[in-house]
Amino acid sequence: MTGTPRPEDETPRDWFAPRRNTPPAAQDGPPPLPSRHAAASPALPRRQPAVPAVPAAPAVPAAQPLGSWPPRSRRVFSDQQVWPPRPAPPDESREASTQPFPAIPAAPLPRHGFTAPPRERVGGPAAVPEQEQASGPASPSPPRRRTALRLAGVVVAAALAIGIPSWDAHVFYRSGNPVHTVHTVEPGGTGTLMQVAWQVKVEQADSLPGLGPAKPGRQWLKITVTRTSLDMEGVVRSADPEIKVKHPDGRTWQTETVGKDLPLEIKEHQVGTPYRYDVIGVVPEEVAGQVQVHVIPNPARLSLEKQSVEELFQKDPAAEKPAPPDQVLLFRR
């Protein structure tokens, strides 16, 4: 459309009038390719002789009725049929077409949903109106619906919609409730975690001072947990552990620490000296001989006095990493 005026266009160009040397109907759709080509190539001296030979020429009569209201044919809606062209009014030739390029003899694309615009359908421009009349609703071949693909899409979307929030919630849950790594300790043995050696002794008691005999069907347990710091790193980890009583079938009972002889000040805490927690628990009588003690050391690092900090800095950096709060010592009986 742009370009230098052609030699014969001596008079000022009226940009809003149809060009004299092109068919007026070209405004109704994409301009015929050869015409554009000629205008955009000023090197070519004159109108190319090929222009009238292209099928754009027969388009003129057919397009004129549409041209009575140009905006309708310019604004293409997906649900508006632009191709193949609508059957011309009876007074027009059936052979007419605005299509400037020839038919592509390939299998037509199946139309489905709202995605494929009708213009993608391919057919012989001249033959379509006749074939439409010929085929009619009598011989439809079954449309391919891609039911399996759609179902798969629904399943995948639903799985993602449920799965991603669930996974996120699980990660959040695990951030507060980590999976426990169990370190098993043989009966009477010593378990070492985070530079602290732990020992456990379990006694069954019929009666406890201040608490009296256990209720019928239950059994008091007196548990003595002993901790020995192997070095200053162990001293730093002297926050109180969590102590539970657990049956191999997974049932767990609460315990209560009734006494401990750890020094109140952490600087009085001696390396190599055993300190004791006195713990009581109550379990059903029938499992009193089977339950095992779980000790979950507290991974918190208590702050020491200044003189100890130097010692900490001398340590190998790998040992500086705080262990995750998920290490469990299981003391077999």
Partner: peptide, 11 residues
């Protein structure tokens, strides 16, 4: 939205 196909005269 659009005229019925087949050459409706009403627009």
């Amino acid at each position: 939205m659009t005229s019925p196909p087949g050459g409706g005269t009403r627009r």
